[in-house]
Amino acid sequence: MAPPGTEPVIIVEGLTARYGEVTILQDVSFEVRRGERFMILGGSGCGKSTLLKHMIGLLRPHAGRVIINGIDITRADEGTLHRVRSRLGVLFQADALFGSMSLAENVALPLAEYTDLPPELIREIVRMKLGLVNLAGYENHMPSELSGGMRKRAGLARAMALDPMFLFFDEPWAGLDPVTAAELDILIRSLNEGTGTTMVFVTQELASIFSLAQRVIMLHRDVKGIIARGAPQELRASSTDPRVNHFFNRRAD
């Protein structure tokens, strides 16, 4: 076994993504390593969310493969896909909490579906998960009674309900104030270091990119693919591509 941190656990190979006849991504390849915090960057409309949806099997690629933990999810049957999905947690851009359920019920939902634990054990786990995201005590609140940042954290608690091996985040910082965003950074970092969960982010939030990302790829709509990859600090310091430079230094072209 390769030493932790270098073993690739998600491999995207020659991925081509299309909506109908429109090609959004062309021949994209990269890999995510075990336990790392990996970010997908790029301007608006370059296909970041599209790429993420392909990585979690919500969309099937036109060509290419996505291999998670050795399983090619683009060719997997429903049963296998279901099993792989139970190891994934996803935090959607709009938190996607179920508005008709309390926070406890939201977090308990995957636990009740995938395990045969008795209700009081589930309640214990739910309480722990809400504690992990600093929402202890909010079990019986409804999502509509929470602030945006609290809802994000509750969504994170639900995504982590089954101790997933992989967590995917679509723009987790969007709509958060700088202080709340920084708190979320700290929370994510401690969860990543504590649980060893592999984390993939889609984001444009420079502050969080520099504070969290270990490796990034940057997409661009002109090439329909990756224009840069590496550690964000290195890219900012040494990239010669003006598109990359402008992104990291927050300049208009």
């Binding site: 722990m128 809400l130 504690g131 992990l132 202890a136 609140h141 969860l191 504590g194």
Partner: peptide, 14 residues
């Protein structure tokens, strides 16, 4: 260390 022992015992706010 991440798991908050006190939170485990505290009753819900509501």
């Amino acid at each position: 260390r991440l798991i908050d022992r006190e939170a485990q015992l505290r009753p819900p706010l509501r």
